[in-house]
């Protein structure tokens, strides 16, 4: 296959970037998207040009490190798939692909397709945890968790923190990411005690990080590689309104 690429090249955070056109003439349909970029990079190195910087690590769709916009869709055209799991057989010979980094004020570009997603870590640090110190846990079976709840919690906990939701959201909102964590922990009896302060603290942090807000477009849901649903955002809204109504959970504000 022959693929034409337009890739965002940007020297560093301060530099001005631009789209650069490349041809990759010998793409094998069994390659992953990132392997196709590897091939391009090997060719660039051979020509003495700097390879395209892109984040990636596990290459099996779980670490959440990779991700880019492909023709205007986060992680490319295949639903529920990360870029590393997207294989070239889903494209046609002669296709032209536009590859751009995640764009959000909260995710500044570091270089080429690499962005800084540390805002996600700070969201978790604000409240995305259960405050149990090592050693204080009761027996694993001491608190029962109904299977349905455990399954729903797992659905939400599957989030890999890749940032596709923010990238795709017309408002660059992190609501799906936050909602997923709030739902995961809030659905379990172990996480219930901190539910109010968790949501209040995380929402406040999201504002401080200058993420946008949710306007119920569901673009995030469509590109989430783990298929997380916007139900988790409703849950976050519910928890937030509940916490605010009752005045609980404001200690951390």
């Amino acid at each position: 296959m022959r693929i034409t690429l337009h890739i965002w090249r940007q020297e560093n955070a301060a530099a001005k970037g631009r789209m650069v056109r490349y041809e990759v003439p010998n793409v094998n349909e069994h390659m992953s998207f990132l392997e196709m970029l590897d091939v391009l990079n090997e060719e660039l190195i051979a020509k003495g040009e700097e390879p395209v910087a892109f984040d990636h690590d596990c290459r099996e769709g779980i670490c959440g490190m990779c991700g880019a916009m492909v023709n205007g869709v986060a992680h490319g055209p295949l639903a529920a798939t990360t870029l590393c799991q997207l294989h070239m057989r889903h494209f046609k010979d002669g296709d032209t692909l536009y590859i751009e980094p995640w764009r959000a004020r909260a995710f500044p570009v570091v270089k080429d397709l690499v962005v800084d997603r540390s805002a996600f870590d700070r969201l978790i640090a604000a409240g995305g945890f259960i405050g149990v110190s090592t050693g204080s846990a009761p027996d694993g079976n001491a608190v029962l968790v109904p299977k349905e709840k455990a399954d729903l919690a797992m659905d939400a906990a599957a989030c890999i923190g890749c940032g596709a939701c923010v990238a795709m959201c017309p408002n660059a909102s992190a609501s799906l990411f936050m909602g997923a964590k709030i739902a995961h922990l809030g659905l379990l009896p172990q996480g219930d005690a901190e539910r109010d302060q968790r949501v209040v603290a995380m929402v406040a942090q999201a504002n401080a990080e200058l993420f946008g807000s949710c306007t119920n477009m569901a673009e995030c849901e469509a590109v989430c590689p783990k298929g997380i649903k916007i139900e988790v955002i409703a849950r976050m809204n519910r928890d937030f309104l509940g916490a605010k109504w009752s005045g609980r959970g404001t200690a951390k504000e």
Binding site: H6, W8, M19, M69, N71, G72, V73, Y98, E100, R103, A104, R105, A106, M168, P170, N171, A172, S173, L210, F211, G212, S213, T215, N216, M217, A218, E219, E221, A222, V223
Partner: peptide
Amino acid sequence: LQNRAARPQGYVKKKDVPASYAAR
């Protein structure tokens, strides 16, 4: 205004996948 500020630099190409025309 806040949401516009959350993405100061837009995409060269951007698709809307599921968002209905009404929502957008």
